[in-house]
Design a binder for these strands. Structure first.
Lengths: 224, 224
DNA sequence: ATCGCCCCTATTGTATACAATTTGCCGCCG
DNA sequence: CGGCGGCAAATTGTATACAATAGGGGCGAT
């Protein structure tokens, strides 16, 4: 690991996702350098990456701001994901080895467990969920596709609102994964694509609702 | 324009596309700094961008090499473009203003002209072609989509082999555009998507053939 | 002769100093 | 009182020096 540059990326990312910032806030390279504990040079590389991921935006005069996320943005991301991950699932259906399918099954069992127990372990769910999707993307053997999806998947809004999911939402997600695995076992690419499509599209709506709720909460807090 | 950084990007890019390099060649930041006439700092930013566009690759030890392009890579790019630009065309069909459609028509007339005259003006064709596609992408109003496509569109292989197209290939391309415009005028999103799909898929095959021819030529040259 | 180790060199990574640009403020003039 | 100009502060951009790390070649041991 090219230490400083990567830690800068991770720390700044965590800082942005930690909710200590508001959309539109200006950030200076120096401030970020302080946060990350490195000099401005690696910070610049980190901000470039975060800019590409659209967590940060730059004004015309090259100043850095925390990105704002409209409902359309979220819609856009899920639409693109649906298209691209659907494609990935299709390719994966032909390419997944039996062992990999078993691995997906194990991951998904963990996912089930995480939400079935008395107190759902959301963090564990999210981690397993990410691994699940990454495994499929990887099996698609399309490096550019993987790269694009990496930019798209864990976006801040996603993470911030994920915790407002109901347990039922999460269980439904896990059931989607079950069906996806069935499609892979059957080597049915169309089925896989279709399941992935509805999986993500539903996630979008769960999301949009959760985000709306979160926005209301925030409004309430601000009103205090 | 942040001068140095951008000129570095452009010059290095031109250097790579100019055919003076071979896939697998190692490039050092210093060498690139010389070529671009700037210091290593902006060169680093440029190489990061070129890396994201996969014109350059980095070894495990962070050394920089000229990327290699297999037939599968080209296939992958066109498949992704087909999916994404098809989606863009679909959205554009609903969103293009009448004026923008007229503009597309003008651009395409220029495109026709460039290949109809006695000596085809390939450069002009390619420029107009890019503007044509960019206009559609822009009309789709999906910033992430635009960003992703920007990474995908003018890849080196594309540019390097574009000149081996036959005049008939180019004319067919222009005819595709005609049909696309008709689809836009009819506000028929499905039609637009379908035309865009076949347009790009055919381009891929023209390409793959041209690339094969180019590879043969190169082999012949090397054999001298 | 070959394998492995070590040192030297090539190359990338980071920090810092300085240059260029932009912004916002303040005073001046109409 | 409003707008314009310009100056000062803040911020980003670039260069350079130094640090860290990886690769390659030579030398010795077996």
């Amino acid at each position: 690991m090219s230490s400083a540059s990567d830690t800068a990326y991770e720390k700044i990312r965590a800082f942005l996702l930690g909710g200590e910032t508001h959309p539109g806030d200006q950030l200076t390279e120096e401030k970020l350098a302080d946060i990350a504990g490195v000099s401005r040079t690696p910070v610049r590389e980190a901000t470039r990456r975060l800019e590409a991921e659209m967590l940060l935006v730059r004004s015309a005069s090259k100043r850095i701001f925390v990105a704002d996320w409209s409902r359309e943005d979220i819609d856009e991301i899920f639409t693109l994901r649906q298209m691209l991950e659907g494609h990935a699932a299709e390719r994966a259906a032909h390419r997944l080895t039996p062992q990999a399918i078993e691995r997906l099954d194990r991951i998904n069992r963990e996912l089930h467990e995480a939400v079935t127990r008395d107190v759902p372990d959301i963090t564990r769910f999210l981690d397993a969920n990410r691994v699940f999707h990454e495994t499929i993307t990887e099996a698609a053997r399309s490096p550019r596709l993987a790269q694009i999806l990496a930019m798209l998947v864990d976006q801040p809004v996603v993470l911030r609102t994920a915790r407002s999911y109901t347990v039922e939402d999460l269980k439904q997600s896990a059931r989607d994964h079950d069906e996806l695995i069935a499609a892979f076992r059957a080597r049915d690419a169309d089925w896989a694509r279709a399941v992935m499509g509805s999986h993500l599209r539903r996630a979008f709506h769960t999301f949009a609702d959760a985000a709306k709720g979160a926005a209301n909460d925030e409004g309430a807090e601000a009103a205090e």
